[in-house]
């Protein structure tokens, strides 16, 4: 409220505004059919050269939604080794609302391998697991 008194200038936005922590992080990610896939545990963005002047450099863009070890490091700190990160490239994002909707199917996302493993090795083998409830 105090800011309103100062009347700071407002910049001009030429497109939809997405605040990363507010609109993207920790949101549910759904596949093209609305099936839950994962949460947006972190975002991968274009590299910013460390310690160098950014004069004339391109604005970094969101490259991918991350999953996997990105969550544990956000909880306990540290930095995830980039080899263990599971990525959903930004080009697969269809829309951002109360959930992030993808243009692809859940089974085509790397991060769902655990879900598929549990399904194929445990749930599928229990009688009735493949049928709708009655």
């Amino acid at each position: 409220m105090t800011d309103e008194g100062e009347r700071l200038p407002r910049p001009e936005y030429r497109g939809r505004v997405l605040d990363a922590a507010l609109h993207l992080l920790d949101r549910q990610v759904q596949d093209v059919h609305g099936e839950p896939v994962q949460t947006a545990d972190d975002l991968e963005i274009g590299d910013v050269p460390v310690g160098e002047s950014l004069e004339g450099a391109e604005r970094p863009r969101i490259l991918a939604i991350l999953n996997g070890t990105a969550l544990s490091t956000r909880v306990v700190g540290g930095r995830p080794p980039s080899s263990t990160l599971e990525r959903i490239p930004w080009r697969h994002v269809a829309d951002v609302g109360t959930a992030i909707r993808l243009t692809i199917e859940a089974d085509d996302v790397d991060a769902t391998w655990r879900e598929r493993w549990v399904r194929d090795h445990i749930i599928r083998r229990i009688p009735g697991g493949r049928h709708d409830p009655e």
Partner: peptide, 25 residues
């Protein structure tokens, strides 16, 4: 830095415009 503000003002990347970093809160 409390948040990073992106704007969908880049070239088309899939169905959406690329989200480019606009500034830091």
């Amino acid at each position: 830095v409390a948040d990073a503000r992106f704007v969908l003002d880049g070239p088309l990347d899939g169905q959406l415009a690329a989200a480019r970093l606009f500034g830091l809160l």
